[in-house]
Structures are given as structure tokens and as C-alpha cells.
């Protein structure tokens, strides 16, 4: 019974901290999402706020006057997630398989080089990319050197959607696409929904892939190194080619790792904030605001900031991330996932 006392006193400080700053805030956000509190009136006054039911959700998510802002941020986030997660996962896997080859010298060098970006601050990486992709910056100069006909692009201020740009090559644009594209769904015209990520958002996606791929590669690499070579020897005896062995042995054995890597990717990308904070500017707010950034902007920026409305968006984001994780559990199969 000494254990009971010791156990409780050992665990209590950490539990109090986690409860106060991780669980309680969730409940607080939930509560205030049903109020009209802007954040300015002191809470100890009796008339600081009123309960307004679903009004905030109505205004932002259902059919109120801010739904277009919300769903635009949903669109931006979805393009970001859908672009970053598959590419970084596939790149990480391919790189890990190459680094794991027996003939490769200098494994440690490649591991270090690939991992290094992830120890730097997201803000530092954002500034590096702001510099790389600036008007007279290295990316434009390199592209100009390789393709002499290339016209420098203003990467970080360009709102053109990649899909729109591609369609424009075939002569399809907002005027010629036809009336069907003007149909409004959830506050946005279909034409706006299918824009693809803007050039500015594409820059931020490159940043994310550049930073994260190395980390994921190291995770894949350690998983690959845990596959006993006897498995491959057996396959070889049975006459399997290298590609067959990869498809039927390596990939299935890496399934738990892939689940883990995709989960990390989803949770991280759905919350993208720091990079947007640095790389966004007034011109590109429309195409680069993520849902996470919208939460911040609603609470602290603009002419009428509102903590209550921001809380409502935060709660919806929480549900989105939760559902996304459930869906991918279905697809990638997390029942055997390692932790």
C-alpha cells in the first residue's frame, strides 16, 4: 500500500500539468465555441459573454457569411495534405531502399545529410525558402540557367492554381470553362474548388517535403534494417527477382512503418501553421491560409477578432484530423502498427 501512495504522488504532478494544459483547453475551446466572447471583455464581469448556441458554427461552417473563408482554407489544406503526404512518403521509402543497399558507401553521410533539415526551426527553414524562392533568388536563377527561355516567377506572391494553369495550357480558363463551374458548393464555385494548390502554396509544399522526407527516410531505414536477410535468401532460393521480392516481401513487412509514417504526415500537415505564418502575405492569404492558420487569424487578426469563433473552427479542425486518421487506419491498416 506504500505503492499506492508512491504511485499516486509520482504520477500526480505530470497528470495535473497534462490535464490543465492539454485536456482542459480542449473542453474550454468547446465551451467558448458556443459563446459570443470576442476575448476583450474581462471574463469576471457578469455580461462578458452570452451563450449563442451554434451561431459560430453556423456563420463559419454551415451557411453563414464566413463559410467561403472557411472552405477556402479547407481547400488549401486539403491540397497541401494531398500533395505533401504521398510525395514525402514515397520519396522517403525510395531513398531508404537505396541507402540500405549493400553496395552503397557512406550510409552515415546520407543519413546525416537527409536528417539535418529536421533539426532546424520551422521558422529558419521558412526564411531559407523565402530567400531561395525570392524574385532574384537562387531557384529562379538556376531555372534560368537550365532553361534560357524561363521567365522569373514571383513564387511567394502568386495565387494562380496549378490545375488552373495546366487547364489554361489547353485553352480552358474561368471564362471558357462553361457555366457548370460556376455552381457553388459550400461557399465556393466548383471552378475555385478544382484550382489546385496555388504557386505560393506549392512553394510551401516543397518546403514541407524538403524538411520532412529525411526524417521519414530514417524511420524507413531502421525498419528495413530490422528485416532479417534470411527472408530474402529464402525468396532468392525460390527464384524471386529483386522487384518481386520488393513487392511481395519488403512492402508488406513495411506496412506498420508506412502506417506510422502516414499518420505522422497527416497529423503534421493538417496542422501546418509556422510556415504559413512566415511565407504568407496579404496577396496570397486567399490561397495559402490553412485551417490552422485561420484559427489563429480569426482569434488575433483582422478588424473584429473573436476567440469564440476561432474556438469553433479549432473544434472542427480537431474533428477533421480525427476523422482523417480513422480513414487512413481503414486504408493502410493500422491494426498491427508499431508505436
Amino acid at each position: 500500500m506504500q505503492d499506492t501512495l508512491a504511485g499516486l504522488s509520482f504520477v500526480l504532478p505530470a497528470v495535473v500539468v497534462l490535464f490543465t494544459f492539454l485536456i482542459l483547453p480542449l473542453l474550454v475551446a468547446f465551451y467558448f465555441s458556443f459563446t459570443d466572447w470576442s476575448g476583450t471583455r474581462p471574463l469576471d464581469q457578469p455580461d462578458a459573454y452570452e451563450m449563442v448556441g451554434f451561431e459560430n458554427y453556423q456563420r463559419w461552417i454551415i451557411d453563414g457569411r464566413r463559410v467561403d473563408d472557411f472552405y477556402r482554407s479547407v481547400r488549401n489544406t486539403l491540397y497541401y495534405v494531398a500533395g505533401v503526404v504521398p510525395i514525402q512518403t514515397a520519396l522517403a521509402l525510395v531513398l531508404a531502399v537505396i541507402v540500405n543497399q549493400r553496395w552503397l558507401k557512406g550510409k552515415a553521410f546520407f543519413r546525416t545529410a537527409f536528417y539535418f533539415p529536421s533539426i532546424t526551426s520551422s521558422i529558419v527553414v521558412s526564411f531559407i525558402f523565402l530567400f531561395l524562392f525570392s524574385g532574384g533568388g537562387p531557384i529562379n536563377l538556376l531555372l534560368k540557367a537550365v532553361f534560357p527561355s524561363f521567365e522569373p516567377v514571383s513564387w511567394t506572391t502568386n495565387n494562380d492554381g496549378l490545375v488552373h494553369l495546366l487547364l489554361n495550357v489547353f485553352g480552358v480558363n474561368g471564362r471558357t470553362v462553361g457555366p457548370w463551374a460556376e455552381t457553388e458548393i459550400l461557399g465556393l464555385e466548383i471552378w475555385e474548388w478544382i484550382s489546385g494548390p496555388s504557386v505560393a502554396m506549392f512553394t510551401i509544399m516543397c518546403l514541407a517535403i524538403w524538411t520532412t522526407t529525411g526524417t521519414l527516410m530514417v524511420i524507413y531505414l531502421s525498419a528495413l534494417q530490422n528485416i532479417p536477410s534470411s527472408v530474402y535468401e529464402a525468396a532468392e532460393v525460390d527464384g524471386a527477382t529483386g522487384l518481386q521480392a520488393f513487392r511481395h516481401i519488403t512492402l508488406p513487412l513495411l506496412r506498420p512503418t508506412t502506417f506510422f509514417v502516414v499518420t505522422l504526415g497527416l497529423i503534421g500537415t493538417f496542422q501546418v501553421f509556422d510556415q504559413i505564418y512566415v511565407l504568407q502575405n496579404d496577396q496570397t492569404a486567399r490561397t495559402t491560409t490553412s485551417v490552422a492558420y485561420l484559427v489563429y487569424a480569426t482569434a488575433f487578426e483582422g478588424t473584429s477578432p473573436s476567440l469564440a469563433e476561432a474556438s469553433a473552427i479549432a473544434i472542427v479542425l480537431f474533428i477533421i484530423i480525427f476523422v482523417a486518421t480513422l480513414i487512413q487506419r481503414r486504408f493502410v491498416g493500422g491494426d498491427q502498427a508499431e508505436t
Binding site: F21, L22, V28, F32
Partner: peptide, 21 residues
Amino acid sequence: FVILGVLMIPGVVLLIPRFLM
């Protein structure tokens, strides 16, 4: 199990309530 669950809470959701708390 509560601590395992806490891992799932996205940080951005906590921004606003932490600020006001």
C-alpha cells in the same frame, strides 16, 4: 490510456484556449 489519448490532440486546437486560460 489518457496519456496515450493526449498524444492525439493536435497542438493548434490548444492555441486559443491556452491563451485565454
